[in-house]
Design a protein around this nucleic acid. Structure first.
Lengths: 182, 182
DNA sequence: ACCTGAACACCGTTCAAGT
DNA sequence: ACCTGAACACCGTTCAAGT
């Protein structure tokens, strides 16, 4: 990639991050191009699909979700508290950008999607937490990590769409936790 | 309402039903007007907002959800099976029109929405089922009907967005059922 | 090799003009 | 009283023309 192209690329991602934070994942791409000081064609050249762009905006999302999982695995809390704070972390982190939960769910069952890798990261992170609880004999068993992630992502959509504050999300997560624990 | 207006009104709802069944709740309103053989202005005169139109399309949704709840309340199944088939019925019925689950969730916390009444119907129907299970001492208690509905609607969104078949939805509902039952 | 920006087909929404 | 359909501002996406 030529130096000037690289520069434009960076400006686009920068602008996209701004716009997505303000207006969510469904924001106008022309607006992004406008704010980046770039023609629409240039945006499409670098990011042929909207998911490509979102994927670029969410680059460090991966590390953060892994860090949250790590914290849960290393926690000394009792199982229920540990599971709940992990779930709360996931919902908060996924829901930080409005529209993102719904896109993640769609990407889950579509290996074509550029966001599919992010789903796999989440599933793996969740599996680590489940494994830790399983070692303590705290888990009922029988539930696949992908299923659990889908469920929690569904709650993230509810929180996003209904603009719910964390305390309003808690009761739903509590039901799920009770369903998973022995 | 004048007779000719009434006729146009009916044709719009008819066309909207068709289009929503084919393309979901986000379908083009101009397309609806086109198919109804009506100017866009006429559509807006009868249905100032998109939710107004969807609400009209979903008129008999109410009776059907109540019938499903009735069937569950009168069932002789053991609690877990009863709860699961109620939930499955709800997810299937809500998810019949793509995009509808997400709209219902948004309407839940927005009393302004014309779809808000539909949410209340669902919450009431679910409360009846919960009451029946509670009488059998099968419920853990502590969960509000609205919370449970939100959770199930979240699963409906997951099913909708991920185009999941009923068997793929079952594991998530099972976790929720286990979380609610004693 | 890369970018621009006009152009196209679409959408939601409004409102003067008609009957 | 009710309807029409042209009109407006927007959007996603493409592609000839430029550097």
């Amino acid at each position: 990639m030529r130096a000037d192209a690289r520069r434009k690329y960076d400006r686009i991602v920068e602008a996209a991050t701004e716009v997505v934070v303000e207006q969510g994942t469904d924001a106008s791409l022309n607006e992004v191009a406008r704010r980046a000081g770039v023609g629409p064609g240039t945006l499409y050249r670098h990011f042929p699909t909207r998911e490509d762009l979102i994927n670029a905006v969410m680059t460090n999302w991966v590390e953060r979700i892994q860090a949250i999982a790590e914290a849960a695995v290393g926690s000394t809390q009792p199982p229920r508290g540990l599971l709940l704070s992990w779930f709360e972390g996931v919902v908060a982190h996924i829901g930080e950008h409005s529209g993102f939960p719904a896109r993640l769910i769609a990407a889950m069952d579509d290996p074509q999607s550029h966001l599919h890798g992010k789903c796999e990261v989440l599933i793996a992170a969740n599996a680590r937490v489940m494994h830790r609880l399983s070692a303590d004999g705290a888990l009922r068993g029988g539930a696949d990590s992908a299923e659990i992630c889908r469920l929690v992502m569904g709650i993230a959509v509810v929180a996003d769409e209904g603009k719910l504050a964390p305390p309003a999300v808690h009761p739903m997560l509590a039901i799920v936790a009770d369903g998973l624990l022995t």
